[in-house]
Design a protein around this nucleic acid. Structure first.
Lengths: 338, 338
DNA sequence: AGTGTTTTTGAATACGTATGCATAATAAGG
DNA sequence: CCTTATTATGCATACGTATTCAAAAACACT
């Protein structure tokens, strides 16, 4: 008998009536439960439990003009790195009593309609992960007083906080490591070229090589996918067989590179060394054991969350751009060559 | 100047005033925009745009007693299979104008408080993916008239729909394939034992072997992780070196198995064949090229979505339990042995 | 121009909660 | 036991929208 769909949901008023108190008192119990006697509190909770009463979040948001919703807009959730990111964000916000409205954007840039959805729900804040926020988009959020923090991306001179890994520094350390281990002919397979991530990593990488008077650097760019890494590597290997190491823009690219190298009968790391970025789960799988850069994920997420919460609760300092370091995870894909 | 947080948000009333119409008319434009003259409609939209007006979803939900929110509760979002699932669900619901409240449950069973959250937001429906719904939990949702569909799990005699892959059939076909390719000594590494998934697959697998008078089947059970598959395989190999094929409870387990086999110097598929389940991205990577069972993901998701929507819109038939077939993807991890 | 019919419009109300204010109940202090 | 300070409670109202109902406007057709 599923038919009677619109059963009357019990409200604070119902609870109040049955508990012999006023609606206000019930409200106080479920909101902050301050200033209500222990006796009535108990009675109210008892009745509420009996009726299966649930406070209505919409009504609450309406009157409060606040919500416990956080918009989290991501891209490429299939990428293991971002799955992990989502998991951690969820755990943190959940612990703080916030709920996530999940948006997986197809585009580099957040859509008008995606923004609209978040505004309609009057989200308390928005985490934008690995996506671009145009000035117009930013303005829309700002106009509605919605806090924003960028995760794993940044924009110069923007009026909101951003948290990401210090890609410049990481790339430098990776380059140094490769130089120190005796490599001479370099390749970098990046993700899309125009992002801060790629730009910073390339800059760091180049600088170190320049320092050592190495000019032998090939750069390929593509997507952050296995296929892209695979193809770019094939491309690279037909172009120049003398390459002795490849730095992948992320782990998935690097894994694709490894497989491309092996497929033509060459060996990792004996013939070509490979380094990745992110330290996703698969890099630890025995078929790969990829040497990679670990982003301090938990720390990054924690920082992002607390910046956002500070902003929401008005305890905000001015927007901050925070870079986290991370560190190299040395496994088996880089050979000491000299 | 971030300080003035509580700027007055424009409401339908503001738009109405500036457009010289009543609030009702503005509402009609943004709700279904039926029965409002083209002239006023245009004027209203113009003003609304100018003011950056956004209808308030909370107010709407409050009066409507409906919401455009769907709760999606998952587990193990880090598992590539479920990342893909989430991506597709998001795409479908988004296209239908629904928003997702994402919940990543740690537990096998949905928490009281997770349910409460969904009830508070008066979600239109809930997708429960790979998690258990106790009778009490079910009752709570039912009592609030919330539609539920189980994804990738089912419970006997439950009063809600479920969509999943026909694990029994799939396991049978996999077993047949292995038998036909000349395998004689079998191992099955499952996920947690007490789930419908494991039970059905084991049953199907066993039946086929019994049919062929093969009794040589070892069963290990663990988690749906790479490490679990890896360890179980090591266990298996020390216990019985004669095994010539392994069926992994999911792809990640199978990949772990492959690496365990290779690590002790044996070869896949020459010494031991391996078959997985799910067809996640990594199975197509050249280091693995795992033969596996593809679940018809898009079809499963589409079906799940339409069942849920039907339920929400009251066009519901009675609860259905739908099994999808899927098919074997033959790659390079099964050897023809005879 | 007048009648009947359809389409637009606006006024009023309801949704379920939080909260300021006034009042009632209780505690504290002597 | 009375006064004063404190805490608990209830009343009334507001949040921003959808929707019913009645009235007004537009239209169709003689």
């Amino acid at each position: 008998m599923q038919s009677d769909k619109h059963k009357k949901q019990y409200t604070s008023e119902d609870v109040a009536r049955l508990a012999g108190v006023s609606q206000s008192t019930v409200s106080r119990v479920f909101a902050g439960n301050m200033g209500v006697s222990e006796k009535k509190r108990k009675k109210i909770l008892e009745i509420a439990n009996e009726l299966n009463y649930q406070p209505n979040a919409h009504a609450r948001s309406l009157i409060t003009r606040k919500s416990k919703l956080i918009g989290i807009v991501m891209r490429r959730i299939r990428n293991p790195f971002y799955s992990a990111v989502l998991e951690i964000f969820h755990a943190r916000f959940s612990a703080l009593g916030y709920n996530l409205i999940f948006i997986n954007s197809d585009n580099e840039e957040i859509t008008e309609s995606e923004i609209s959805k978040l505004l309609e729900y009057n989200v308390a804040g928005v985490i934008v992960s690995d996506a671009i926020l145009s000035p117009e988009a930013e303005a829309r959020f700002k106009r509605h007083g919605i806090a924003i923090v960028l995760f794993n991306r940044y924009v110069e001179h923007a009026d909101y906080s951003a948290v990401f890994c210090d890609n410049y520094l990481a790339a430098k350390q990776i380059a140094r490591y490769l130089v120190e281990t005796g490599h001479r002919s370099f390749a970098f397979i990046s993700g899309p070229q125009d992002t801060s991530i790629t730009i910073d990593r390339l800059r760091g990488f180049r600088e170190v090589l320049a320092d050592k008077n190495i000019t032998d650097l090939l750069v390929e760019s593509g997507q952050y996918t296995y296929e892209s890494g695979f193809k770019a590597t094939q491309e690279l290997l037909t172009r120049d067989k003398s390459i002795d190491c490849i730095f992948g823009g992320n782990d998935v690219i690097a894994l694709g590179a490894m497989d491309a190298i092996r497929l033509i009968g060459m060996k990792v790391p004996d013939d070509i060394s490979v380094v990745g970025f992110d330290n996703i789960l698969m890099t630890g799988w025995f078929s790969y054991m990829l040497t990679t850069w670990e982003q301090p994920l938990e720390e990054m997420v924690d920082t992002t969350v607390s910046l956002l919460i500070d902003d929401i609760t008005n305890k905000l300092r001015k927007p901050q751009t925070l870079m986290m370091k991370g560190h190299l995870i040395i496994r088996n894909t880089v050979k000491v060559r000299s």
